[in-house]
Amino acid sequence: MTGTNWVGLYTLTKREVGRFFSVYRQTVLPGLISSGLYILIFGFTLEQRIGEIDGVPYTLFILPGLIMMNTLTNASSNASSSMLQMKLLQQLPDILTAPLSSLELSLAYIIGGTVRGMVNGILVLLLGVLLIDMPVHHPLATLGFIFLVSWAFSSMGLLLGQLADSWDQLAMMQNFFLTPLSFLGGIFYSIKMLPDWAQQLSLVNPIYYMINGLRYTVLGVYDSSPLNSFLMALFMTILFTTAAILLMKSGKKIKQ
């Protein structure tokens, strides 16, 4: 075998995608249900007490944030949990002894996580369109941005999955970093509503840019330049993809 192992790359990607679809009750439905609950609770109760933000009804305003939260948590947890699971269940030797390069291995995991991130993000997007008639101002840019963020966070997940030795470490990343940063990234508010110091603090939160960018492509409103959001997403994609592939190539944490 010479050149790229396309069949191997396709097979491992298929396995990664098949893995999360086979347990869709754990990997697809929960995000959809919790997002539906947010829409119902905010739509039917709180929206009447909270005014519009940037001329957008409150339930619509929070939807891009919910889409983004679902996208990035699912994308990162797919690659990280799959990698750690393979390590702990002795499945990793099967792929490490196969004629697959570090790049092919990394891409398969990243694509698997990207697909899960996109499926979850797009389902919440469709829920918004169907339940509350959410307009999508720039459909192609929306899909493109969801794809880019899914790829970035799937790569981050692969990096974390390689570094982690236990489920506890992965849960810590999710609970102490990703979820707080998502909530503080402006899912439920515009950062313009915050005091100056908190606004400045929000600008160092990368997830703020992801939510801000999607809010622009979906609703046409934004707190800061959409270009910055795109550049931040691109920067994270390049950074995490490179780091995940280099770590895989080095074999640290997965080979002895």
Binding site: W6, Y10, G18, L89, Q91, D94, A98, L100
Partner: peptide, 27 residues
């Protein structure tokens, strides 16, 4: 290679796992 440690897989049936394994080798 047949490793000493027995593997565990929660997701796929045995036949599918064999096809996956062949796929990793470009088949």
């Amino acid at each position: 290679i047949a490793h000493q440690e027995l593997p565990i897989d929660w997701f796929f049936p045995l036949e599918k796992l064999l096809y996956f394994h062949a796929g990793y080798y470009g088949i």
